[in-house]
Design a protein around this nucleic acid. Sequence first.
DNA 1: TTGTAAGCGTTATCAA
DNA 2: TTGATAACGCTTACAA
Lengths: 344, 344
Amino acid sequence: MDQQKRATISDVAKLAGVSITTVSRVMNKNYPVKEATRKKVEKAIEELEFKPNLLARGLIHNKTQTICILTPSIENLFFSEVVKGIDSVIKNKGYTTFLCNTEGDPEQEKLMIDNMKDRSVDGIIAINPRTKNIKSGYYEGISKQIPLVIINGYNRGIHCNYVLNDGEVGTYEALKYLYELGHRDIVFLRGRYSYSYDVKEDIYRKCCEEFKLEFDEDNILIIEDGNGLEAVEQSKAVVEKIIRKNDKVSCLFACNDWMAVGALKAAKALNISVPEEFSIIGFDNTIISQITEPSLTTVDQNMTGLGQISGNRICEIIRDSDKENKKIIIETRLIHRDSVSTKI
Amino acid sequence: MDQQKRATISDVAKLAGVSITTVSRVMNKNYPVKEATRKKVEKAIEELEFKPNLLARGLIHNKTQTICILTPSIENLFFSEVVKGIDSVIKNKGYTTFLCNTEGDPEQEKLMIDNMKDRSVDGIIAINPRTKNIKSGYYEGISKQIPLVIINGYNRGIHCNYVLNDGEVGTYEALKYLYELGHRDIVFLRGRYSYSYDVKEDIYRKCCEEFKLEFDEDNILIIEDGNGLEAVEQSKAVVEKIIRKNDKVSCLFACNDWMAVGALKAAKALNISVPEEFSIIGFDNTIISQITEPSLTTVDQNMTGLGQISGNRICEIIRDSDKENKKIIIETRLIHRDSVSTKI
DNA sequence: TTGTAAGCGTTATCAA
DNA sequence: TTGATAACGCTTACAA
């Protein structure tokens, strides 16, 4: 490594024959500098290819133009869309992103946030943070120390800035749709740990009451792993089991598209045709919902929009050190594709 | 924001009644400190919840325990697997990752690298960087200034550290497999801009010679967008066209799984059954290859491994400021699933 | 075993 | 319009 040492501000000052203060002023254009001096300095800057060291700046201002994105899983297709949305707005404002993959572990989540504080990030966006850390008040504490936006982890009584999908409405619409098509035995499939699953299950239970469906606790299926291939496998297993056991069930609502894929595979394995004999609705409208055969009817979360709004929100909070916490809710929308039969 | 000001080393020193040097020594355990003093200091650290400011450290050492991952597209499923691999090794060594999404734009790529240098990152891993910047020698220059690993962007004569799949062997094996099954008219489907496509096309042409296939330039299909849903759509269109036009073609080799999905959809649209009437091989072994129906026979790149090796390599380079450039090649492996018929 | 002081590369304050 | 100089929070000679 030839590591030609980078020029510093004093190298420039020396070459231009001025003080470092003047060089700083030329760079930042925050104080008047005589035209001739400015020229000299600019020439020296160019010649030495000088670029200011951002660490030094950060040390003074205690601002680093850096935002941390925390996620339980980068394989989650939800994640990449959201990150793309965030990135698209914050990069224009000069921010760079630290990416932290917590692997869904609440303790790692905390450690990584500590690390981010040590690095003086300007703000944190936490995607689907662990319920445990939200409920314990951990995030509420963090939110008092550093600008924070939580995506999809809303908890009543925990005061933070949230941006979230209207999972309740999305779930309700999907279930109502199934009900109106004539379905009476609806299977509900969720992962174990996430607030968003709790919300959906809650709506499911309420729908059963509202629609006067015969409620069967066994129709609530829980898998351990929420995202990725494991979720597909696990979902396939539990769905096969329920279909074998209860031949009345005619459709299924899955809390995300992975699970819906698993359900699709279960039906296929049992030689049950989707949607003719069994209907499936997913959640998220990730790319996989367009790739499956049949393609998945699913609830769109507008994930890019979710990211954009979160990006804007974190910038607002940083700029105004906005005292008011806000809860911004994004609308969802049922996307009709081919995994639900419209005639029953 | 209550922004309770963080304790600094001198707060600790004051509280413990020692000098900041001593505090530093207690933290870093790099010089002897009397047991009693150590206790006092540790107590003060705990009491004030002191954690050192990493910017300040970075400024001194010109090391930040930070690695930049540069990618043209975070939606690319290839990406998330690789990042997961990288992350899994470097996080254990105390590194945190900056994520830079260049959106495939060569100019942004350069700007982002500049930004990363300004932030004193310890190393850069560039996933599928733009051919243009490699060929122009830009990366070779960067590589002399800062530890750099390029994933899948090998160019002969450009001296850098590379980690790459053996796209040549993978392609060859896939094509040979098709040939041995009796296929004589093989369609080749690629994206326009990437060195990896060039390599594969090259092998395709050589295979045509070696297997004495009747070469038809029209059997080489090119789409503009390599990744994501657009690739699926575009592939579907061109594949439909070729099948309509040339009824001799019995199989297709796609340069990645997205394209293979497009081919699958084309066959479906034409009511041609896969694999009975038409065989398809993808490349990458991304999760989607297990989700499609039928599941995709594809070439596994061991993307997680690719990431892990890159992560280890960048750490080596950082540690030893290793002068020797290396080119590490990962083996590929044909994964047999259900999109290729074994009886023909 | 401990402390003083210089230094990392900037910006900000003050005086000239 | 400019320049010393202190500061940001830490590490590290060097001295004691």
